[in-house]
Every structure is written in C-alpha cells, then in structure tokens.
Design a binder for these strands. Sequence first.
DNA 1: TGTGTATAGTTGCGTTAACAACATCTTCTC
DNA 2: GAGAAGATGTTGTTAACGCAACTATACACA
Lengths: 159, 159
Amino acid sequence: MATDLYDDDRITAFGLFVEAYTGIMSRLAGQLAEHGLSVVEFEVLLRLSRSEHQQLRMSDLAAQTSLSTSGVTRVVDRMERDGLLCRRACPHDRRSSYAAVTTSGLTRLTATLPGHLELIAQWFTGQLPAEDLTRMLGSLRTLRDAVAPGATSGVAAVD
Amino acid sequence: MATDLYDDDRITAFGLFVEAYTGIMSRLAGQLAEHGLSVVEFEVLLRLSRSEHQQLRMSDLAAQTSLSTSGVTRVVDRMERDGLLCRRACPHDRRSSYAAVTTSGLTRLTATLPGHLELIAQWFTGQLPAEDLTRMLGSLRTLRDAVAPGATSGVAAVD
DNA sequence: TGTGTATAGTTGCGTTAACAACATCTTCTC
DNA sequence: GAGAAGATGTTGTTAACGCAACTATACACA
C-alpha cells in the first residue's frame, strides 16, 4: 500500500501550517467569544473601524472579508440587531448601502482589542526569536502575494 | 480615534498568516471539490488511510480532526452513503464502532492525492527557497507545539 | 427617451457544523 | 454481582454560510 504517498513531505509540511493556524485561531476565537463576538464579526468590526468614517459599502466589505455578499448581508443583519452596526443609505447610488460602526460597536471593539493583541503576542509573535519572526513574516508575505494578490498590504491583513 | 490600535503590528503580522492560509486553502479546496470531496472528507479519508487497517474508532477520528464527535457521526454518515467508508462493529467494546475506508474510498483518495500534492508544491513549499522553507517549517513547528501540544508529529499533520 | 446590460443588495433553499440531551454499553466499587 | 460513574455514538435543535433567483437601481447607447 503506497503508504509513502500519504506521508509525503509536502503533506507533513502543510499539516504543520494547518495545525499552527487552527491552534492559534481557536485561542483567539475563545477570547473573542468572551466579548460576545465571532471571528467573522470581529473582522467586520475591525475592517469598518479602520475605514473612512468607520463605514464601508456592503460589497466592499464582502471583498475584504472571506464572505460572499449574502454572507455579509446576514452578518450585518445580526450585528445591526445587536446594535454594533447600522446601515446607511449611499447618497450617490441608491443601490448601495453602507454598513457603519455604531458607538456601541466601537466600544465593543475597543474592549476586545487589547486582549486580542496580547494573545497574538503570546501565541504567535512572541513565540519566535526576533530574527525568526522577521523571516517568517517575509515568507508569509511571499506566500500571501502569490496566492491572494488582491490583498495588498495597504488594505491589509486582519484575521 | 486610536487608529494606531487597529493597525498594530501584531494584527498586520497575524493578518499575513491568515491571508496566506486562507488563500492556499481555498485553492486546495477547489481541487478537492473537483474530485467530489470537501476538505473535511479529504482529511477523514487521509487519516483513515494512514491508520492500521485503514480504520479508526469514531472518537479517535474526532480527536484527530477538527470535528466534534457528532460532527464525525455526520461526515461518516454522508461518506458511508456515498460508499467511501463503512462502519464496522468493534469486537472488544460494543459501544465503539470503526469507520473504515472502502476500496472505493481508497480509489478516490488515490485519484485526488497527486493533484493535491502538486498544489501544495505550487503554492506553498515551492514558493520559498529551500533555506527559507526549512526555517519556516521550524518556526511553524514551534508555534504548533506551543498551541496544539497534543498533535505530536508522529500522528501528524494533514489539512 | 427607451431599451438592454451590468451592478448592489436581499431572500429562499440546501448543506454543514456545534451543542445539548439522550440511549447504550463498560468499568469501577463495594 | 448490583448500582454508580464514565465512555461512546446518535439525534434534535439551532446557527451560519454559499448559491441561485429575484428586485431595484444605474449606466450605455442609439
């Protein structure tokens, strides 16, 4: 039985990637949950807060997250219901609408972020010696640019 | 507005990780879909195929994947319906049952793997100079061991 | 102006997952 | 060996997502 095929080095290498990622991610998700946010909701909040006037058109939000447009509709529905976001009409294009962070949403994000950053430091950036981290980030950038060329580092990077 | 807080280096760093991961993963998922497999189903098939007698107890399978036990019940349901897997009674413990790969399942996996490995090479291992890759894998192992100490590299790594 | 095409967002439907409650079987303790 | 405690897997319920269909609006162009 071609056991070698299943144990190919490439699978092992990529498995390491997956396990590191899911391990870190699940810790972050736990902390977000303590603040009543899912990973997706946190990402939405962060993206919007970074944007001009703390708002973004629905489809731009979809493009910046890993969601489809219908997924965005639903997340925004929920977050609007919870008072974290509100929809605003777009003055120039009546087809469009903005999702905008409310004061309550900003408060929630501000309460969540410090712990989030601490965890990233604890389980990711702080785990590696400075030089290794630098090299790793360089390699990650290479991979990211190859695989998601759209995501220019200006718009950058969230979880 | 504390814009600096949202643009913290740690977020940028982790965002790179996330974008690289999701970018690669979505390409792999596409190839798996061409063979009628979801990421989870592929992982199940691979884990089982690597195991003694190409089978594993349901709960062990849950432990090795990112699924809950009820999640495993359902995946195995579907895959059994599709003929990729079958359930077998455990002779020593009548509470337990095994999920075992069928010939058809093994055939499917064998058909899927070469393309899968190629894609890993194309978008991950092959993107980096040998030395960078080695260093990166070392760093990933450090992260993985910190964050998912259970997953010893013997059982290793899948996607 | 009127018509066709493209774009923005929402909704119905099917799929998949987790969680909790549950039934069944094993093991431990006395 | 009888009952308690624990393990194993399944099922009901709920939540989240994507796709495809749909509505409303904008734009091109004759």
